[in-house]
Nucleic acid binder design. Structure first.
Lengths: 223, 223
DNA sequence: CCTTCTCTATGCGCATTCTCGTCGTCGAAG
DNA sequence: CTTCGACGACGAGAATGCGCATAGAGAAGG
């Protein structure tokens, strides 16, 4: 779940990004409209949070251009003004929701949640499972064969990612991008290391988490 | 639990807001009807306390317009007049309760309590518990293993918040928002400090209040 | 003015995560 | 069938950064 935050006030941006990360989302930040559009254009975000007042390219125009390019990423507008007019303009431009500053973070989170859930049609599962392995995104509990397993943060994020793609191989590049937030392969073997630790904890008999040589890894649904 | 106070007399407003905060509520204040309506429109309050006599837009009209917009937030009217007529007008406009000035703060608090309890259908638990830790929101008594524990206000609010979410991790951002009423992260470590003090008083053997690295804290239900 | 409570600042300790190095395994080609 | 090359597995040590505790400053209340 990756979210783009387009916001010029660095304090607000920093606060929002941090909060989203603490809630388990990956978050990118663009300080102006142009950068935001470029990022939105090149990455497939699950949602965007866009300030209306932005340098270079305002939020409304940004979203209009995004929609013109047939991008349907759900957008939540942020604005200092609370006038009904502004709200209407935002929604007409293709925004999906509207929040006025100052706002409570929990409200922002709730709305983003709703947006993603609506967009993906299927309610955002809080509980992932594959075979006898289960993972709860909210309580952060992981079990194998009914027994609780204690995972470190990185291991947790990686397992969650694998579970989301259970049955299909995921490349190391993908993993680095979504779990480590790296855009480029920094010539490292971190993934191998954490996969190794994950196997020891979650797949001791080596039947669930398979290696696909030259590609990456698969989580086997059967077993 | 967030409450909006719409009241033009700044002394009364200040007094009420302070009292609510001390009782563990988050409270906002609007000095006139227009501001009040705008705030009520953009935020999801758990209850509102509205003076009938207000500049710009009187309390009755405010609530009428709120109800017209299908908002069901419970409203308690404040008024200087105690005439039965006024009371009827208020309730007809969509108010849920009515209190005449001057009033005792404890009475206001009791009624707000009742309003929220009624609105949320599930009676607002006055007593929270998790494992051998109990907390009473009304008497402000806290016990651990049957023995009373003396908490400072901040510590009390934080513990109450953790108890409400027992079993699920709560992020520091959330804590700052609900316990400190900060909308933005002021780059501080207050949360850590108060957690530390809370542990010393309520969880000396470090079994109940766990750290979730990079996220926040959990209160463990078992033990 | 004194007390009580809360916030800020700092350094330390430790958990987590990364890097490195070696060993093992797989697959292809001769 | 054997050999060679490349990729992956995994353990051990090192670095980073997060969280904890403490003390002192500041604010609020009596």
């Amino acid at each position: 779940m990756r979210i783009l935050v387009v916001e010029d006030d660095s304090k607000i941006a920093c606060f929002v990004v941090r909060g989203l990360k603490q809630s388990g989302y990956a978050a990118d930040h663009a300080p102006d409209g142009e950068t935001g559009l470029a990022l939105a254009d090149s990455t497939d975000y699950d949602a965007m949070i866009v300030d209306v007042m932005l340098p270079q390219l305002d939020g409304i125009s940004l979203v209009k251009r995004l929609r013109a390019a047939r991008r349907v990423t759900p957008v939540l507008f942020l604005s200092a003004k609370s006038s009904v007019d502004d709200r209407i303009r935002g929604l007409q431009a293709g925004g999906d929701d509207y929040l006025t500053k100052p706002f409570a973070f929990s409200e922002l989170l709730a709305r983003v949640h709703a947006l993603i859930r609506r967009a993906s049609q299927s309610p955002e599962a809080t509980r992932l499972a594959c075979g006898d392995v289960t993972l709860d995104l909210v309580t952060r509990e992981v079990t194998r064969a009914g027994k609780a397993v204690d995972l470190q943060p990185r291991e947790f994020t990686l397992l969650a990612f694998l579970l989301r793609h259970a049955g299909r191989p995921v490349s190391k590049t993908m993993i680095l991008e979504h779990v480590w937030d790296y855009s480029f392969d920094p010539q490292t073997n971190v993934v191998d290391v954490v996969i190794s630790r994950l196997r020891a904890k979650v797949d001791p008999d080596h039947t669930r988490l398979e290696t696909v040589r030259g590609v990456g890894y698969v989580l086997r649904p059967h077993v």
